[in-house]
Amino acid sequence: MSEQSVRASRLPRIPAVPLAIGIGILIGGLLVLASGGDPVAAYRAILVGALAPSNWPNTLNWAVPLVGMTLVAALPLRGGMVNLGGDGQLVIGGLVAALAALYLPLPGPLLIAAAILCAMIASGLYASLAAWGETRFGIPMLISTLLLSYPAIGIASYLVGFPLRDLTTGLAQTRMIPEAARLPVIAGPLNIGLILMVVVAAAVVFFDRRTVAGYELRMRGQNAKFAGYGGVRLASQQVRVMFASGAIAGLVGAILVLGSLYRYQDGALLTPGYTWSGLMAALLAGGAPLGAIAAGLFFAGLQTGGFAMQRETEIPRVLTMVLQAVIILFLAIRHGVGRKSS
């Protein structure tokens, strides 16, 4: 800390995150330039695409799952743990929500609530499996969360490809869920999933700042040994935090299925890459919830802007993924952003 401030003092102080974003934009611009594009036009298209008032609903709609997956990553990260299994948890949530909506004999609002709840519980349990594996058997969660995604995705893919497939279409997907199970629309593409996500985000911030458990999680993140010595029950804390993290992923899956896809479609939840963008956003803020939410919103803007850029300049929107990665790498290397906020 002090060593760095001594080293940096010769330069005018630029806060780390804006500097990293600047570097990311610079490198991205060079990349565009090198491949024969016009960086200024590209960035203008991104900016307009993300921030023009008429595009707000789209940006917000994209932000709901992305911020959700940001919280999925941020919550364990706050305690120094990494959940790389967001993809699997997301898929389980989406599939369970679709199945509950299709097969539970419940009336409208109850059906929605039940579907969301089932999705959250299923994903939460799946995520806590990795935590249990580490506390009970010492299998590093870093890798087990990731590996557990593959069977989840494979089996979900098989289920909608064969036994649960909607035979009227040519695609691997379930039947459409009944109208009653669909999330009420607020305006345009926005549905009450947005409100649910705002509530969850607020709850996570409140948890982090005001609760005893939030304090204990923060302390674990700063020094797990210290927390254990101070009486924090590390094993059960780990399982609980991973359950919560997975449950949020399940909620995101449910919101996507009940709110915009209206069915579970093979691959549809994963193609946008919410999990990894969310992880990047959480890392950007070192797991601090408010910062992570802000970073998630920023990435959501970047990505919706990316669509506009691709439409208008024919520069592929994966450029935004490169930008995200460069920002994280710069912060990790230059400012030690990571699991410990040292």
Binding site: Y215, Q222, N223, F226, A227, Y229, G231, S341
Partner: peptide, 18 residues
Amino acid sequence: ATTGTALTASAADNLAMG
């Protein structure tokens, strides 16, 4: 340093543990 405190946390947080 490795068990008794969390060096990056504030004194208030450190003193609250337990």
